[in-house]
C-alpha cells in the first residue's frame, strides 16, 4: 500500500520534470555546449565543429573579468548595506512595534516589492537627476551648492541596488525575529547580560538562518541584474550581465557569451555552497561557544 502510494507520488511529479528538462535544463546544457565552440565568421553566431576551451581563455583575458570584479564589488557592498539597514529595521518591526501594527507595516514593506522593478528604479532617476528633488532639497538645507552630480555614477547604482533588494533582506529577517521567544531575551537580561550582549549572543545566533537566506536572496539576483545599472549608471554603469547579454544580441558571438554565462553561473553556484558551508560552520561554533543549547531549532 505505502509503496504504491509512493510510486504514485513520484509519477505525479512527472509534468514538472518534463517542463524543467525541456524548457530549462536542455537550453542550459546547450549553452554549456556552445561555450566550447567558436564564432566562425561575421554572420554565424556559433559553430561547434571544433571544440576547445579557448572561449574560457578569452573570458579570463577580456573585458569580462574587470566587469565581473566591478559587479562583485557592487553586489557585496549592496548585500552588506542591505544587511546593515535590514537588521535593526526588521528587529524593530518584529520586536518593538505593537503587535497590532505589525501586519500593516509588513504589508507596507511588501508594496515596493510588488511595484515594477524598472519603474521604481526610474523613480530614483527622477529624484537623483541634477535638476531633481534630491538636488533641490540638498541645496535648500545648504549641504550642496549647485546641481547634484550623482546620477550615472557608481554611487547612484549602489543606492539603487540597496533600494531594489532591501525588501528581500527585510522579509526573512522579520520572520526569524518574530519567531524568537521574548522570554529568552528576558532570561539573558535577568542573568545580567547587557542589551548588546543579549542581542549578539541570544538574538543574532537564532536569526542566523534568516541572515543567511536574506544575504543569498539579495546577492544572487544582484550578480545578474543589469537593469538598475542601466537606469542609474548610464554608460558607466555596465554590469557583468550586460556583457553576457551583448554577446547574444548586438555582438552575435554565442560561443563567447556562453562561456561567460557558464563562468557566471559557476560562480553563483559556488557562492551558494560557500554560504551554506559558512552557515553550518558558524552555527556549530555558536552552539559550542554558548555552552547551553536553548532548545530552539530553526
Amino acid at each position: 500500500m505505502a509503496r504504491r502510494t509512493q510510486r504514485t507520488t513520484a509519477s505525479l511529479s512527472f509534468p514538472v520534470w518534463a517542463w524543467l528538462v525541456f524548457f530549462v535544463f536542455t537550453p542550459l546544457a546547450l549553452v554549456v555546449w556552445y561555450s566550447f565552440g567558436y564564432k566562425p565568421d561575421l554572420f554565424t553566431a556559433v559553430s561547434t565543429d571544433q571544440l576547445s576551451f579557448d572561449r574560457y581563455g578569452e573570458v579570463l583575458d577580456g573585458v569580462f573579468m574587470p566587469m565581473f570584479w566591478a559587479t562583485l564589488r557592487i553586489a557585496l557592498t549592496g548585500t552588506l548595506l542591505c544587511l546593515l539597514v535590514a537588521v535593526p529595521f526588521a528587529y524593530w518591526m518584529a520586536v518593538k512595534v505593537d503587535p497590532r501594527w505589525r501586519p500593516l507595516l509588513l504589508a507596507l514593506v511588501l508594496v515596493p516589492f510588488w511595484t515594477n522593478f524598472l519603474v521604481r528604479t526610474i523613480g530614483w532617476q527622477v529624484i537623483l537627476a541634477p535638476s531633481g528633488m534630491a538636488s533641490d532639497v540638498l541645496n535648500a538645507i545648504g549641504i550642496l551648492d549647485g546641481p547634484l552630480d550623482i546620477l550615472y555614477t557608481r554611487g547612484a547604482v549602489q543606492l539603487g541596488v540597496v533600494y531594489n533588494y532591501l525588501p528581500l533582506m527585510i522579509l526573512p529577517l522579520y520572520v526569524v525575529f518574530e519567531r524568537l521567544d521574548p522570554s529568552q531575551r528576558e532570561a539573558s537580561r535577568d542573568l545580567g547580560a547587557g542589551r548588546w550582549r543579549t542581542f549578539f549572543s541570544v538574538t543574532v545566533p537564532d536569526a542566523l538562518p534568516g541572515i543567511a537566506s536574506g544575504c543569498l536572496l539579495v546577492f544572487i539576483p544582484l550578480m545578474g541584474d543589469y537593469l538598475t545599472a542601466s537606469v542609474l549608471g548610464g554608460a558607466r554603469g555596465t554590469m557583468v550581465g550586460q556583457i553576457v547579454a551583448r554577446q547574444f544580441t548586438s555582438a552575435q558571438n554565442w560561443a563567447l557569451g556562453a562561456a561567460m554565462a557558464v563562468t557566471l553561473m559557476a560562480f553563483v553556484l559556488l557562492t551558494v555552497l560557500i554560504v551554506a558551508a559558512l552557515f553550518l560552520l558558524v552555527r556549530a561554533v555558536v552552539r559550542r561557544a554558548r555552552h547551553l543549547d536553548l532548545g530552539v531549532s530553526p
Binding site: A10, S13, V16, W17, L20, F23, V24, F25, T26, P27, L28, L30, V31, Y34, A45, L216, I220, P221, M223, G224, D225, Y226, G241, V244, A245, Q247, F248, W254, G257, A258, A261, L264, M265, V268, L269, V272
Partner: peptide
C-alpha cells in the same frame, strides 16, 4: 527523486535572469 527535483528547482531559482534569457532564446 524528491531530492533531485528540489535541487533542480532550486537551481532555477538561483540562475541569474540573464542566463535564463540567453539560454532559452537559441533553444
Amino acid at each position: 527523486w524528491a531530492g533531485v527535483l528540489t535541487a533542480l528547482l532550486a537551481v532555477t531559482l538561483i540562475t541569474p535572469e540573464v542566463i535564463d534569457g540567453i539560454s532559452i532564446l537559441p533553444w
